[in-house]
């Protein structure tokens, strides 16, 4: 899709889509939304970028091995935090973050950090799936691999 209209319009639109995605992720514990919903909005914005600006520009911006590292690190941290909660519930440890004041951004204990991690994983997975359908393999998309 090499239309200049699409490029201009999506260039205007993308920042707003991404800010909205980040908002949905960050306020997941206070309002409707959360990691999965916000992550899918972010992922959709990345897919839009890929379709409008072409695979090469997109591969330069979102490098495969960095994305993979971010997704795996997010999953590992998710596992560690959730594991801490499960093990801590059994051994009677206290939540080090605390619940905070109800309604403020930094409240709800571990929910917000977990939402951020889920959002990162979901956005990257959506983008990877779109790449996979387009290219057939990740290997072609990345010279470092």
């Amino acid at each position: 899709m090499k239309s200049s209209i699409a490029k201009h319009v999506s260039g205007l639109l993308l920042p707003f889509v991404q800010v909205f995605g980040i908002y949905v992720i960050l306020f997941g514990h206070l309002s409707p939304g959360g990691g999965f919903a916000g992550g899918s909005i972010l992922g959709a914005s990345m897919i839009l970028y890929r379709f409008v600006y072409g695979a090469e520009a997109s591969d330069r911006k979102f490098k495969y091995h960095y994305m993979l590292k971010i997704a795996c690190t997010a999953l590992i941290f998710y596992g560690l935090i959730k594991g801490y909660v499960f093990v801590g519930a059994f051994l009677g440890w206290h939540n080090p973050v605390g619940t905070g004041t109800v309604g403020s951004l930094f409240s709800g204990g571990f929910i917000m950090p977990l939402n951020v991690l889920v959002g990162a994983v979901v956005a990257i997975t959506f983008y990877f799936i779109a790449t996979l359908f387009e290219e057939g393999d990740f290997g072609n998309a990345d010279p470092h691999q």
Partner: peptide, 24 residues
């Protein structure tokens, strides 16, 4: 006595965490 009871949870978590270190 409690630590043994953590083994099932810890074994599942250990495998899942190691699984996602692999791609790195």
């Amino acid at each position: 006595p409690n630590l043994v009871k953590l083994i099932p949870l810890v074994s599942i978590m250990l495998l899942m965490l190691s699984a996602f270190i692999m791609p790195l």
